[in-house]
Simulated assay, not measured.
Amino acid sequence: MTESTSDITMNRIGIVGTGNLGIVLGKQFNQLTSAEITAITDIDSAALSRTATKLGVPETSLYNDYERMLDDEPLDAILIVTPNGLHYEQTVAALDRELHVLCEKPLTINTADAEALVERDELNDTVLMVGYQRHLNPGFIEARKRWALGDLTPKFITAEITQDWRHHFDKGTNWRMDTALSGGGHLYTTGTHVIDAILWVTGLTPKYVTAEMEWHDDIERLDKQSSIIIEFENGAIANVSDSGIVPRTREHIHIWDDRGAVYLEGREWDNRTMKKVNEDGSELSPYMNGGERKTKPEAFIESIQENVAPPATARDALRTTIVKEAAYESAAINERIEITGL
């Protein structure tokens, strides 16, 4: 029997933070039959008004103080799209009110806060989902079936992600240049995608991290580009390169095992593609070009309705945070860092 509209539970969503991503995800929520953006908060009144117009939210449900929105609005969940350093306190405030949370990555900017959210998440019935979209990409899901959920073992990994952040570094006024809000430089905000993806699809446990970084204005958290070696407990090695001072966005993750390899690749922010390489080096065709996939709002609402873990969890975020923090420590003191806590 087809579910009638009257049988669908409407999830009332509040947005904390506006900007392009908040608008994109807000529109995706409004396209669902079981979700609606009903309130928005932002410290920028002009941006708040523009976003409200685009998402159809009345002036009576607009706020400059997110805690007031959480207290005054009858919400079921919130979407957090603020600077990285605000994510932890805003997530905690929502969980304190028993709301579900979809928080953009990174979940936190230090390991202690990530550990605290994992502990809380695993004791609560509410959904806490992190916005790592590669967990929704069919190519990455297929790769995970091969390794993290399969019986093959990765041996050698190369990964690279690039993006043009030169305007941020040149101007120096964006929140990304304030490590209290960003957590770090390009690796912390963008490189986090490939580190998370490697850990998620392989299921490997990192043992050591060695990193070199080029810093912006000698601030040893504000990296412009980096080179990282991750050694895993099974003996596998990953070489990860990250740059924010090149003119185009490109990404690849190549993972080899005894049966061949999987290549995950993409340009700009288009869907990433996946292709397989046979044991003899020949390439399989056709490539998986991303195909149909859930949006982050779809996956989030599905997790709430079915009471299941979301595609990207707080524990996924913790594992990524631990590796990133080790990379910054290694680059700062020029030493190989042993990973603990995993």
Rank of each mutant, 00 (worst) to 15 (best):
E3V: 15
S4L: 04
I8C: 01
M10I: 15
G17L: 04
G17Q: 03
T18A: 07
L25I: 03
Q28K: 09
F29T: 07
Q31L: 13
S34V: 00
I40F: 07
T41A: 15
A47M: 09
S49W: 01
R50H: 10
T51D: 08
A52T: 05
K54V: 11
P58W: 06
Y63R: 08
Y63L: 08
N64I: 09
R68Y: 01
R68N: 10
L70S: 05
P74L: 03
A77N: 06
V81L: 09
T82F: 01
N84P: 02
L86Q: 13
A94E: 08
L95Y: 04
E98R: 09
E98N: 14
H100P: 07
T111S: 10
V118I: 08
R120F: 10
R120S: 02
D121A: 15
D121P: 01
T126S: 13
V130A: 03
Q133T: 15
N137L: 10
P138V: 07
P138F: 10
E142M: 13
R144N: 04
R146T: 15
W147S: 10
L149H: 10
G150L: 11
L152E: 14
F156Q: 09
A159C: 10
E160H: 03
Q163I: 03
R166Y: 01
F169N: 06
K171P: 00
W175A: 07
A180G: 06
G183A: 07
G185I: 10
Y188W: 07
T190Q: 06
G191V: 00
H193F: 00
H193K: 00
D196I: 02
W200R: 04
T205V: 12
E212S: 13
H216S: 08
R221E: 13
K224G: 00
Q225R: 11
I229V: 10
F232D: 05
E233R: 02
A238C: 03
N239T: 06
N239I: 01
D242F: 01
D242G: 04
D242W: 00
G244M: 03
V246A: 02
R250F: 06
W256S: 15
W256D: 11
D258T: 14
G260I: 06
G260Q: 05
E268I: 01
W269Q: 11
N271T: 04
T273A: 12
V277D: 00
N278M: 12
P286Q: 06
Y287M: 09
Y287K: 11
M288P: 00
G290D: 14
R293Y: 06
T295A: 07
K296P: 14
K296N: 13
I304F: 08
I304D: 02
Q305L: 08
N307L: 05
P310M: 10
A312W: 07
T313V: 10
R315P: 02
L318Y: 05
L318E: 06
R319I: 03
T320R: 13
I322V: 15
V323Q: 04
A326T: 03
E329R: 11
N334E: 15
E335I: 03
T340Q: 12
G341M: 12
L342Q: 12
